[in-house]
Amino acid sequence: MRVAILYTTSIICGFCLMALEILASRLVQPVFGSSVDVWAAIISVFILSLSIGYVIGGRLADKTRTNLALGWMILVAGVFFVLMTIYGLRFNEALPEWMQTARYGSLLSSLVLFLPPSLLLGCVSPMLVKLVFVSAERVGRTTGTLYAIGSIGNVFGILVANYVFLPLFPLNPTFIALGAVLMALGLAHVFLPMQTHTTATPAAGATP
């Protein structure tokens, strides 16, 4: 049950992250166009925020012994998803004319709009590793399975966003729905506490 919840968390966060990347283009294009510059900006910002997220998430995971921080990360990511419907396009349009260029403006826009939520979702993976982690012998298998599941979530996020969300639903309701899912998931973690396994770091004098 515990592992199932953690794997579900991984797949949902992976899904929302890549769905955001696809949907992001539609927030940027009205102002910056649809050139490869725009895609370069979006993709680089997502990868950048993932790497920052991995660092922060890893450190946090070592400091905490519960899933409380994880829950808050996901919850706040969901908040960004929802609020983006308010400030996303407005921010881009409010940029002065000289900054509304595809080459650099779209990079700035992507940083401001997409770095916070994707960074928060990037923190999730290392924190999940810590929670799933059972023993040092199985660390490879555990992390491997988690990454695989998260990546499957990524794949579905891209495909569903492209083939279902974009053609069938307006942008804002999609953002709000994804945000709601993330917030619900975050709440679940906040309200259902889990301890990390402590067997890996035996306390002093606790020899069997």
Binding site: P30, L89, L166, P167, F169, P170, L171
Partner: peptide, 11 residues
């Protein structure tokens, strides 16, 4: 076609 559903490239 709106900025919310700008899908001329899909249809």
């Amino acid at each position: 076609f709106t900025d919310q559903m700008p899908n001329a490239d899909i249809v």
